Amino acid sequence: MEFLELPKRTAGNRTYGLTSIIDLGTPLEELKSILHDYAPLIDIAKLGFGSAYVTPNLKKKVDLYKQHDIHPYFGGTLFEKCYYQNKIPEYLASLRDFGIDYIEVSNGTLNIPLQERLDLISRIKKDFRVIAEVGSKDSSQEMAVSQWKDEMKQLLEAGCQYVITEGRDSGTAGIYEKNGNIKCNLISELIQDIDSKKIIFEAPTPKHQMYFIKEIGANVNLGNVKINDVLVLEAQRRGLRSETFYLEDSECKLPL
Rank of each mutant, 00 (worst) to 15 (best):
I103W: 09
V105M: 09
V105W: 07
I112D: 02
I112W: 08
Q115H: 13
Q115F: 08
E116C: 07
R117A: 12
R117K: 15
L118A: 12
L120S: 09
S122G: 08
K125A: 13
K126Y: 08
K126I: 01
D127K: 11
D127G: 12
D127E: 15
F128G: 11
F128S: 14
F128Q: 13
R129E: 13
R129K: 15
I131K: 01
A132M: 05
E133F: 07
V134E: 01
G135I: 07
G135H: 05
S136C: 09
D138K: 06
S140E: 08
Q141K: 15
Q141V: 15
E142T: 12
A144K: 09
S146P: 00
W148N: 03
K149R: 03
E151R: 00
M152L: 12
K153F: 00
L155M: 12
E157K: 15
A158M: 09
A158E: 13
C160T: 12
Q161I: 14
Y162W: 12
Y162E: 06
I164M: 15
E166H: 07
E166T: 03
G167T: 01
S170D: 05
T172V: 08
T172S: 06
T172A: 08
G174F: 05
I175T: 05
K178L: 10
K178W: 06
K178Q: 09
K178H: 10
N179C: 08
N181P: 01
I182G: 13
K183C: 04
K183E: 04
C184K: 10
L186M: 09
I187C: 11
E189S: 14
L190A: 04
I191D: 02
Q192E: 13
I194L: 03
D195L: 10
D195V: 11
D195P: 07
S196A: 15
K198E: 02
